Simulated scan of single mutants.
Amino acid sequence: MIRDVSLNDAKAITDIYNYYIDHTAVSFEEVMIEPVEMTKRIQAVHTASLPWLVLEENGILLGYAYATQWKARSAYRFVVEVSVYLESTQGGKGLGTQLYDALFTKLKQMDLQAAIGCITLPNSASVHLHEKFGMEKVGHFAKVGRKFDAWHDVGYWQVML
């Protein structure tokens, strides 16, 4: 079941996200966060009236997807950045597709121009997911993030809504 996020989901979302912080370069955050920080992030997205969705099965949160304001300046107000994260054992089951399908459905009903996805490279699964939703690669920055004593590239994908 996919539904809108609730503040009660902050702990489960934090657990999912901290895996990516601690074990991957998918997120460039380097210090695991606490549920209170995730609560603030959820509240910020709600304040901006942007969608944040969770996918749960039998009361267990398996993943989440959300849109955030891409940049703070007013002229960018019609562009969002999208993200999706799954519980670490849930990849390859189509859950990311389900979440993005629901997220993009909501985004297309809003007064928005474009959605952008930022992907640490290489990450073929994420690239495939974003391209499945019509996103095209529009930028590539070499060695701009340093995590786990290694430099990582970042690519940007975009779709007009």
Rank of each mutant, 00 (worst) to 15 (best):
K108Q: 15
W70E: 14
L62H: 10
N123V: 15
Q69H: 12
T89L: 02
D149S: 10
F104H: 10
L61G: 05
E131W: 06
H128Q: 12
L55I: 00
G145Y: 07
E56L: 11
R77N: 13
T120S: 14
H130Y: 03
S126P: 10
Q109L: 06
Y66E: 07
V79Y: 10
Y100P: 04
A115E: 04
Q113G: 11
E57P: 03
L61D: 05
V82S: 10
L62S: 12
T105P: 07
V79R: 03
L62P: 00
F104S: 11
G117H: 03
T68Y: 03
Y100K: 12
V127T: 13
L107G: 14
G63H: 14
G94E: 11
T68W: 00
F78S: 05
E56R: 06
A115G: 08
V80T: 08
R73H: 13
Y85C: 04
G96L: 09
G145D: 04
V144P: 03
A125G: 13
G92M: 14
K108L: 10
H128T: 15
F104N: 10
R73T: 11
N58V: 04
V54G: 09
S88Q: 12
K106I: 01
A125H: 15
K132W: 11
G63C: 07
E87P: 00
D101R: 11
M110G: 09
I60D: 00
N123P: 14
D101L: 06
G134N: 13
G117N: 01
L107I: 08
S74Q: 11
S74V: 00
G59P: 02
L62R: 09
M110Q: 09
K106F: 09
C118K: 11
V79W: 02
M135Y: 06
Q90V: 03
G92D: 13
F133S: 11
S124T: 12
F104C: 12
G96W: 03
